[in-house]
Computed example of a mutant assay.
Amino acid sequence: METLGLALMGTGRMAQVYGPKINAHPGLRLEVIYNPRIASAEKAAAQYGGRAMDDLASVLADRGVDAVVIATPTDTHLDYIEAAAQAGKPIYCEKPIDQSLDRVDRALAALDRHAVPFMVGFNRRFDPDNAAFREAVGSGEIGRLTMLMSWSREPSPPPIDYVRASGGYFVDATIHDIDLLCWIAGERPVEVYAAGSCMFDPRIGAEGDFDLTMTTLKMPSGALVHVNNSRACAYGFDQRLEAAGDAGMIQTVNHREDNLVRWDSRRTAAREPLKHFFLERYDLSFDHALDEFYAAVTEGRAPSATADDGRAALAIALACAKSAKSGHAEVPDYRRSHESS
């Protein structure tokens, strides 16, 4: 089995997810951990392995580095994409590519100039339940798709500093649902309508953001897609999908530590809490996403979650954010700027 040496860019929360998973993958080798603050890189290397480096040019020139995983703050993604693409290194980049469509278009222009495999970390596509759900919809099991719905509720609001840097709830969180549902439906919306409120943490509202949203996407086929998101949920990390068609309906269910349904004098259902957060609920999806990246690089093909998918999801999320502020339906901007032409 061919082995790829990876440079892990960053040492924060998402880098802490990818470091151990790269090490555990039979076809991947954690060659380098990069952070411009060498002490942070050294600390991470002591935990996960690899060599700590703080010079980007040296990382990209290193013969042991076959590809890069970008798990740094969003506002740094563009610089690393441009540098890695110019160096001819395949790229796996956490979502979103950027919070600005103009900057995403600059990244796409770099990828046009330097044809390297590029994958966006939309990990929920690679969750086994979600993949099986899409397969059932695509096979026609429920007939013609008419309605598609997603529930995505988090256990508790994040720190306010995270909210300030997140780009807003739609760009930070709803974008996952947007990409997943467009992937399942096989089409992108012609119009979106969204509404938002702040009911859990007034500091989020003070930042001009929401902690509770509902979104409707109108698809070219006429199918309607609904997303409801919440920054707080008393019973855990609520993650469900439902698809209705003219011949039936399918659903995914929440994951629990114990999925048995018990009936006795005290209860009539499983009472154990839901998987606490995305790191537990979607743990396997990150492994499968790395499988996809490895296969794409070694087979010389484009990964299934492309840069164009990343741009489209951001365009839809920004249209949703605009709709929630304006109170009107909005049309996503799918047109790339002249910089990428």
Rank of each mutant, 00 (worst) to 15 (best):
P36L: 15
R188S: 12
P155E: 06
K43G: 09
A132S: 12
H25T: 11
F170K: 02
L4Q: 09
E292N: 11
R203V: 04
M249D: 02
V253S: 09
R203I: 04
A109Q: 15
C182H: 07
L145E: 14
Y282T: 00
Q239M: 04
A165Y: 02
T74Q: 07
R153W: 13
V17T: 14
E31K: 11
A312W: 04
Y80I: 06
P159F: 12
Y48H: 15
A194V: 07
L6A: 01
R37Q: 15
F118G: 03
A185D: 11
E242L: 09
D287Y: 09
V32A: 08
E154D: 11
L284T: 04
R106Q: 14
S221Y: 11
P36M: 15
L111N: 09
G64Y: 03
I175S: 01
D264N: 15
K95N: 02
A195S: 10
H328K: 15
A289W: 09
L145G: 14
P73D: 00
V69A: 14
A57Q: 15
A87T: 10
I175N: 00
T72A: 11
N228E: 10
P36Y: 13
M214P: 05
S340Q: 08
A41W: 10
V261K: 03
E154M: 07
F237W: 06
V163W: 00
P96T: 03
R262K: 10
W183M: 07
R301D: 13
V261I: 04
D283G: 02
G12N: 07
D55T: 01
K21S: 10
L274K: 01
S221Q: 06
G310Y: 04
A132L: 08
E2V: 14
E31A: 06
T3W: 02
T306M: 04
A67L: 13
S58P: 03
P202T: 03
A296P: 05
A305Q: 04
C320E: 13
M53N: 10
T11F: 10
A194L: 13
Y34N: 01
A270N: 12
A57R: 11
D283W: 02
T213F: 14
M147E: 14
A206C: 03
R266T: 07
N130R: 00
A45H: 06
G27E: 05
F293E: 06
S197I: 00
G5P: 01
S323G: 12
D75Y: 00
F278S: 01
F200Y: 15
Y169E: 08
I184W: 02
L108N: 13
I250Q: 08
A305L: 08
L290M: 13
S340V: 00
L28T: 01
